[in-house]
Design a protein around this nucleic acid. Structure first.
Lengths: 191, 191
DNA sequence: GCATCTCTCTACCACCTGGTAGACAAACGT
DNA sequence: ACGTTTGTCTACCAGGTGGTAGAGAGATGC
């Protein structure tokens, strides 16, 4: 059966549903119909709805992380990584807003679902905080950087929600809007 | 039976549920349990779940509108109304964040639910746009003001979502955070 | 050729959802 | 005193939910 792509298609459809209508409001039948398959096929690939949510979150976080790594690696040597990361996040948000909106949706599911998420993000956050504070920074400075990163993350997600909202209200976010969002985000990070 | 306050208590519980977990994810039984009453009592006061949603939205929009009117009326004569309105919105958002988060939740229910909302807000928006553009402004300027107001509204709601998100991540939004949000919002309105 | 593995399906199930019908009791109008 | 109105309840119902059991069709390995 040539190793089907069903799993990926389920993840994509679930991501779209979860981000646009919410996790609890998106039934397995909804996802199944979008994929063109029966609910039981979803339960074959992911043992339960919770497992599907976890899978979607892991994929989203993974993709996000990869994009960030790529941005840091490809930055022009002279310039700070912060700008490159911000640009990459905004680019990703423009191309696949669901990726970011999903995170806000998941954050409301209670600690049971947020647990694995925190586990995935935690170490990454520590690394980023250390990098942002600079080498040899004292723990207090690193802690401050960490807080600033959390605030920036919240701002990014809120920005994605805002874009979604604007679109629903019939006002397409344009380049000028994006430019303002960018400088706002930089201000949070570089304080 | 001394004219019970059941209706108000239902509205309050429904607002909290809708804003925190989403409309579709909050069942009538959930709301009923929070109020300490049976589901059928809710259906007595509001004929259907849709009617309950409409009721909650109307109450939220009404309360929001009243606060804005109060702010405009009580502003110091020399200064622009914009600052007063922004401050009042932020104050309300800090005191009752659910009021704002609810609007984002409702905006995802599709035009059936958004229709009445747009109907309530529409005229108000026109009035505000005219006031912001100044007396005797040409239609194009009023249209630009209108767009700026929509953007500001989206920003306000996104800010409320951001605050909710920060709280869930264990970072309490503080005064400095609020001050930055305020100047950001003013920048959108005054360009 | 045949057993096995992979993948999707049909057939159920128990439970939850929004909603209807109507009983019942307290308060009210006259 | 007594019918009516008001507010809450119990008892249901049809349809949707996440999930289980297991059949069956292709591909694969030997």
């Amino acid at each position: 059966m040539a190793r089907s792509d069903t799993r990926e298609r389920i993840l994509a459809a679930a991501l779209a549903g979860f981000a646009r209508r919410g996790v609890e409001a998106t039934s397995l039948d909804d996802v199944a119909e979008a994929v063109g398959v029966r609910k039981q096929t979803i339960l074959y690939w992911f043992g339960s709805k919770d497992a599907l949510v976890t899978g979607v979150v892991e994929e989203a976080v993974g993709e996000l992380g990869e994009a960030l790594d790529r941005a840091v690696a490809a930055r022009r040597p002279g310039r700070s990584a912060t700008g490159a990361v911000v640009d990459e996040v905004l680019r990703l948000g423009a191309r696949r807003p669901d990726l970011l909106v999903l995170l806000r949706e998941v954050s409301r599911l209670g600690s049971a679902a947020t647990g694995p998420l925190a586990e995935t993000i935690g170490p990454r956050l520590d690394g980023a905080a250390a990098a942002l504070a600079g080498p040899g920074a004292d723990p207090a400075a690193r802690e401050r950087s960490r807080r600033r990163l959390v605030e920036a993350g919240a701002r990014v997600i809120a920005t994605a929600v805002e874009a979604q909202l604007l679109t629903e209200m019939g006002v397409e976010p344009d380049r000028a809007w994006l430019r303002r969002r960018r400088s706002d985000l930089l201000a949070v990070l570089e304080g």
